[in-house]
Simulated assay, not measured.
Amino acid sequence: MSLLNDFKAFAVKGNVVDMAVGIIIGAAFGKIVSSFVGDVIMPPLGLLIGGVDFSDLAITLKAAVDDKPAVLLAYGKFLQTCLDFLIVAFAIFMGVKAISKLHKEQAKAPAAPTAEVVLLTEIRDLLKAEKPVAPLVDKLPPV
């Protein structure tokens, strides 16, 4: 039973749940980026280089024979995947950079002093303004 309890404690920790949410959002973000690259960026880029669709770029290693398909080295799909990666990496970089900038701005802003600190500062300033109290100390009764 303790193994089951240990697993339950591990599975409901905040870090595990946060990680799961991050993975799910990351997978969805990957699909968005793949669509952006495949449907928005690659068609104009292919048009600029002569109407070439990158996903069709391949080298035939062995031609199709009868009902066996051809063996292809599909480097176009690899190029598209690399472009997907670069866009995802750049988007993550920009997100991390923005978050880092926010953290720096929060760190630069000094915290307002608490009410206790303000009161103690006022007391200190009043005591500094007073005359020395040394002559009064001599007149105190012995303890």
Rank of each mutant, 00 (worst) to 15 (best):
5 N>G: 14
24 I>D: 00
142 P>W: 03
69 P>M: 06
100 S>F: 09
124 R>C: 03
91 A>C: 09
136 L>E: 09
54 F>D: 00
109 A>Q: 13
126 L>E: 11
48 L>E: 03
118 V>L: 14
136 L>N: 15
94 M>K: 05
98 A>I: 04
105 E>I: 03
132 P>A: 14
122 E>P: 01
120 L>F: 11
13 K>V: 02
55 S>R: 02
23 I>L: 06
136 L>I: 03
53 D>E: 13
45 L>Y: 00
65 V>T: 12
57 L>H: 02
12 V>M: 14
20 A>G: 14
138 D>E: 12
129 A>K: 10
17 V>N: 05
9 A>L: 10
37 V>S: 06
82 C>F: 12
14 G>L: 12
110 P>K: 07
64 A>N: 06
137 V>Q: 15
19 M>T: 06
108 K>F: 05
117 V>S: 08
116 E>W: 15
76 G>F: 01
8 K>N: 10
69 P>Y: 05
16 V>A: 13
41 I>V: 02
71 V>C: 09
76 G>I: 00
73 L>D: 05
110 P>Y: 10
34 S>V: 08
11 A>L: 06
50 G>T: 00
68 K>P: 04
62 K>Q: 15
123 I>T: 02
34 S>F: 11
127 L>C: 04
127 L>P: 03
40 V>C: 01
91 A>G: 02
24 I>Y: 00
142 P>N: 13
108 K>N: 14
94 M>W: 11
66 D>Q: 15
112 A>Y: 07
44 P>M: 00
3 L>F: 07
82 C>T: 11
27 A>R: 01
72 L>T: 07
50 G>P: 08
117 V>W: 08
138 D>C: 09
45 L>A: 07
81 T>W: 15
38 G>K: 04
25 I>H: 01
99 I>K: 15
87 I>Q: 01
